[in-house]
């Protein structure tokens, strides 16, 4: 059986297309239209996509993972309880935490700890967001909507606890939407490390 060959016809061209000049005129006309619209047209009709970067900035998308921030409690202290979940989860090992106990007269004493040192090396961070997922207290977040500000020195990229606490979220708040139940609040379950077990 002979093989069947599918014959594809050559695209037909009209004489006007073959003559080239009318098509050239059409093409130049189109380009001219765009040129005049974008150069001399009213501002509303211009379709220029360029963003003049340092002067105008485009917002990052909603779920963009920016630089970290440590969320605060209502009294301004960090929500972080120094459980080391984030530094354990971190694949780049860029988080360094030194945990410390609250003073004995603090209601939180014996219930939770706080980070005496909380350091993130932003140059080492790979912005995977695992620390945010690992955190049981919603204490570390990457919702700042900012990328790292550039700098000339490596030391400037070691963000300590105070720096991280001072960065607001994209909505400008230092808190989170999740309510926190402090020891002594009526909503607090009333368990602590010594009594609970």
């Amino acid at each position: 059986m002979p093989a069947t060959v599918k014959v594809i016809k050559k695209p037909r061209r009209t004489i006007a297309e073959q003559a080239y000049v009318p098509e050239v005129a059409k093409g130049i006309g189109f380009a001219m239209g765009r040129f005049f619209k974008n150069t001399f047209g009213p501002t509303a009709k211009k379709e220029i996509d360029t963003v003049k970067y340092p002067e105008e900035k485009r917002d990052y998308p909603e779920r963009f993972r920016g630089i970290h921030r440590l969320t605060q409690r209502t009294d301004g202290s960090p929500r972080c309880v120094a459980c080391l979940c984030c530094s354990t989860a971190c694949p780049a090992q860029c988080i360094y935490i030194e945990a410390a106990e609250y003073e004995p007269d603090d209601p939180r004493y014996g219930y939770e700890r706080y980070p005496a040192v909380f350091m993130i090396d932003e140059l080492r961070c790979i912005f995977c967001g695992y620390c945010v997922e690992a955190c049981p207290c919603d204490a570390i977040r990457m919702d700042t909507g900012m990328h790292m500000p550039p700098s000339t020195s490596r030391e400037h990229f070691l963000y300590d606890k105070e720096t991280l606490l001072s960065i607001p979220g994209k909505d400008g708040t230092y808190l989170t939407a999740n309510p926190r139940h402090e020891p002594g609040d009526p909503s607090h379950p009333g368990i602590d490390r010594e009594q609970g077990h």
Binding site: R34, N38, T39, I48, D49, T50, K52
Partner: peptide, 12 residues
């Protein structure tokens, strides 16, 4: 001019 045709801003 090329930038204006292509909806860019060009050298500025």
């Amino acid at each position: 001019q090329s930038a204006m045709i292509q909806d860019r801003l060009g050298p500025s």
